[in-house]
Computed example of a mutant assay.
Amino acid sequence: MARTADIAARRPHYQRLLAAGTGRFFRPPRTTCPWCASDRLRHRLRSRDHVQNKPGTFVLDECRDCGHIFQNPQLTSEGLDFYYGDFYDGLGGESTAKMFAGRGSVKRFRHSARALRAHASPRRWLDVGTSHGHFCATAKEELQDTEFHGLDIGESVELAVKEGRIAAAYRGQFTLLAEELAGRYDTVSMFHYLEHTLTPRGELVAARTALRPGGHLLIEVPNPESPLGRFFRGRWMPWFQPQHLHFVPIGNLCRELERLGFTVVSARRRGNQHIPVDLACATWFWAARAMPKEDAPWLARRPGRAAVAARWAVALAALPPLLAAYGIDLLLAPLVRRTSLSNAYRVIARRGPDNTLHNTPHDTPDGRGN
């Protein structure tokens, strides 16, 4: 009942936002690649919001020259606020926190901490896009002498301090806070963060600024070159529209890091950074298309009893294939992790001295070079 009341209280706000439609949530479409400026673009796929079921259609385009995949048209700042609303905080905060605290996430976090530990023993570590700080809490078990700090734009990072998962919190945009943090950290991590950002290159520059010379940057992101992305199309969870704005191929990322004066010490498309949810999520997204929508404040009205009953009936019918799909994901995970099918990659790079930066144009908020 409390959730029903909370949804009802938020409904007028969402209805005001949607009164004029969703058009203003998008920038004008680009005609050039935001990574290499090529005009040789092609449509990769169309998708809807499969997770929150907010209104809108989202397009991913691919550059034929460098392989960069990006949302086009891209969300504006107002659009990002709308589509992020009630996911990491608010209505969705509790369920998102539970997801990050789950056994699979904890196991993956532990592997990530060990991957960095093979190259360094950091004294101070900044986790960018930390959300509720669950990675830091897990990594602390592997690196007991390391002090973990977190940065995020939502209130979750402040809750992470109160709950003891991180020692310090920064709330805001990394690119705007980087100068304040200059040279403070031995390690900066970005776990499934870079794909959410408006200017990936700017985020890499911010990481370089926050690191001391010799410090390490650890990045894990979706692997846009995985064949699973083509097979599942819009129902491939790593596309995660509308939140994921940019998908950088591993070669592009490594070359950019080297341009910024980093030395790439590890670049792995195959490994334990793979998240075994591809078939299960695609199955759920497929079943959800047949379901009446769940009550949410962005719906004009609360679904009636018949719609609620129909939703439960479809969900129960979908449960056996969903469990089977999840079982297949887990069964095949050891094999998938050893192949190009892996849905994520990991890069670890060591920052060089200040005089190693090679000055070439960076992307700007609209994705165009200076």
Rank of each mutant, 00 (worst) to 15 (best):
K293S: 11
E203C: 01
A306D: 09
L217W: 02
D65S: 06
L91A: 05
K98P: 12
K293V: 10
A160I: 00
A206K: 00
A206M: 02
I328S: 05
L159T: 15
Y345S: 07
A115F: 04
D65G: 04
P361V: 07
E78V: 10
G102S: 08
L357Q: 08
G229I: 03
M190Q: 05
S156E: 10
A182M: 06
A290E: 10
V59I: 14
R16D: 10
P276C: 11
A317Y: 03
A300K: 10
V59Q: 14
C254P: 04
G172C: 02
Y170E: 08
G164L: 02
P213A: 06
P29V: 06
R64T: 14
Y14Q: 07
R230N: 14
S47L: 04
P353R: 03
N355D: 15
S77Q: 13
P12W: 01
H358W: 10
A296Q: 04
A313V: 09
S226P: 01
R268Y: 07
E179R: 06
G271E: 05
R337H: 06
L341D: 14
A113Q: 01
A120G: 05
L194N: 01
R212D: 12
P34D: 09
S105F: 10
H111K: 08
D39W: 01
F191A: 15
E155A: 12
C136T: 05
A5L: 08
A9M: 08
D49A: 04
P292F: 05
D366V: 06
D295P: 00
A139P: 02
R311G: 15
K140R: 13
W35K: 02
P303K: 04
C254G: 07
N252Y: 08
F148G: 03
L198F: 13
Y88T: 07
L341P: 05
H362N: 11
A282P: 00
E256T: 10
Y84A: 08
R42F: 13
I219H: 02
T146I: 04
H68D: 07
R123N: 13
P321E: 11
M291W: 01
A97L: 08
E158N: 12
G23C: 14
C254L: 06
H119I: 09
V248M: 12
P200E: 05
G172W: 00
E163D: 15
K98S: 12
L194A: 03
G215W: 00
P29Q: 07
A118D: 13
S340M: 15
V106I: 14
L91S: 06
T96G: 08
S121N: 12
R230T: 12
L91N: 03
C254R: 06
A167I: 05
E163I: 03
L332W: 01
W284P: 12
E147F: 10
C66V: 06
V347L: 04
A97S: 14
S226L: 02
M1S: 09
L143V: 04
I219W: 00
P249I: 08
T96H: 11
G93W: 00
W284R: 12
A310H: 11
R16I: 13
A288D: 15
Y83C: 10
C33Q: 03
A9R: 06
G102K: 02
F262R: 00
G129W: 00
H149L: 11
S156H: 01
V347A: 04
Q74I: 14
T197L: 01
R103S: 15
Q273W: 00
A178L: 03
G56V: 07
E180S: 15
T209W: 01
G129T: 02
I275C: 08
E179W: 00
Q52G: 15
